[in-house]
Design a protein around this nucleic acid. Structure first.
Lengths: 239, 239
DNA sequence: GATAATTAAATTGTTAACAATATTTTATCA
DNA sequence: TGATAAAATATTGTTAACAATTTAATTATC
């Protein structure tokens, strides 16, 4: 994924590497909404030229993960409550369509694969690995999209998933987490196995509403400290 | 929109100007899929630096309107049949959700506004202005999305609308046009006025299926001539 | 000591020159 | 003539230096 730079001993990253690292940091709640993203700082951090960072920031802005203001640089996006609501509402539409499409051509192997994912998720949760369980829970939703086989629906779901953490962090406390309930995932897989579109959609709908209902205004938090972008689970400071 | 450059007499464009011009050219079927987009050529054409073109091309690639290959530059995207099908299938989902959302809070003024748009569209069609009618027809769908008030659904519909002409041009003849039928638009507005979600969705569904059903492989066309990017309705040549 | 103006520093934005790669043209030979 | 190789050209990619702008620090003024 990243080649070693012999001379300086510093790790070098490609453009896509940097992009994914930042996206992952957002997904992991390590980058707080509003965090200033300085070009030279990031360039040093990743051991790349500023021009590359510049390109990455533009791309991130395009997917609404960062806000760019002329002459004032980029910050991690702070979606409005409205945008958050729209995002969740659209997610219900997309996931519903994914289920309908998937059940339309679901095979036994799909159900089995989903079953394996449920197991892994459950195990991670039982051994107290909440971070891992959260990741696997996201993977579950992604896998449904992949299996449905509609690349555009998949693309849109991934877009929504990438943007969701910023909504959560901006409008919910970081504590009251949006962990998916494994038992709801189970119910969805059961419905898929039975080709029961109606139930699958209903459960998914409830499943998503449960998180959405929590969106509300959150008290401001004091700014934290900087540049541990790469250390897992430390939250950056808003600008 | 664009400021005059006194010195050279050439028109200068901002980054967003250039982006929109190219997007519009795609929308108007002036840029054929596969057309090579050379950086210096575009820079001269728009009277801007190459760096700006470079940024625009990256952004266009991000919305899948152009394909970028390392060291070999950018071409207007040539979506696969599969991508086209996925795009249309997703469009049905999105437009359906838009109707449901809109009808949920539609007011009299919305219906009136839509009625006015139908009139304009009809008039353009009757006086033989097919190009204008096509644009107004697209506007009709966009307006439904705007009225629904969900920014994400609107964003996704616009994304699909931008990408659709490339599917049409790649897999359909440029002749058999995808003009929306005004009478179907009328039926949709009627259903909205009656708050009849079911009918509205059904008509929209048929309306969209009608176009989708035409997707099939198209014989190759010989390459045409170049650089009339700005002259209305001339199709650029594939690379 | 607070506020405003000035200066200095930091940060972003732009450009032109150069490097790397791909494409076309020309030359060479069978 | 046709194929292959070499050279020339065109095109894309990268970089470092500079310009413009914003932000922070400093000084001046009341």
């Amino acid at each position: 994924m990243a080649t070693q730079n012999i001379k300086s001993g510093q790790t070098k990253f490609s453009e896509d590497d940097v992009l994914r690292q930042i996206e992952q940091a957002v997904l992991d709640h390590r980058l707080a909404p509003g965090t200033k993203l300085k070009e030279v700082q990031l360039a040093n951090l990743f051991g790349v030229k500023r021009g590359l960072i510049r390109k990455v920031l533009t791309r991130l802005a395009h997917s609404r993960l960062v806000d760019q203001t002329p002459n004032r640089g980029a910050t991690v996006a702070k979606p409005s409550v409205k945008e958050g609501q729209d995002l969740f509402a659209t997610r219900r539409v997309i996931e519903s369509a994914i289920l309908e499409t998937l059940i339309g051509h679901a095979e036994e192997k799909h159900v089995q694969q989903l079953g394996r994912m449920l197991d892994r998720e459950q195990k991670a949760y039982l051994r107290g690995d909440t971070e891992g369980a959260l990741g696997l829970s996201v993977d579950f939703h992604r896998e449904l999209a992949r299996m449905a086989g509609n690349s555009v629906l998949e693309e849109y779901l991934n877009d929504i998933i990438r943007r969701t953490p910023l909504v959560i962090l901006t409008h919910l406390g970081a504590d009251e987490h949006n962990r998916c309930r494994n038992q709801e995932h189970e119910a969805i897989v059961d419905a898929i196995a039975r080709r029961d579109v109606k139930t699958a959609k209903k459960v998914m709908h409830q499943h998503l509403l449960h998180i959405e209902s929590k969106i509300k205004h959150k008290p401001e938090k004091p700014p934290a400290d900087l540049a541990e972008l790469l250390r897992p689970h430390s939250v950056g400071q808003p600008a």
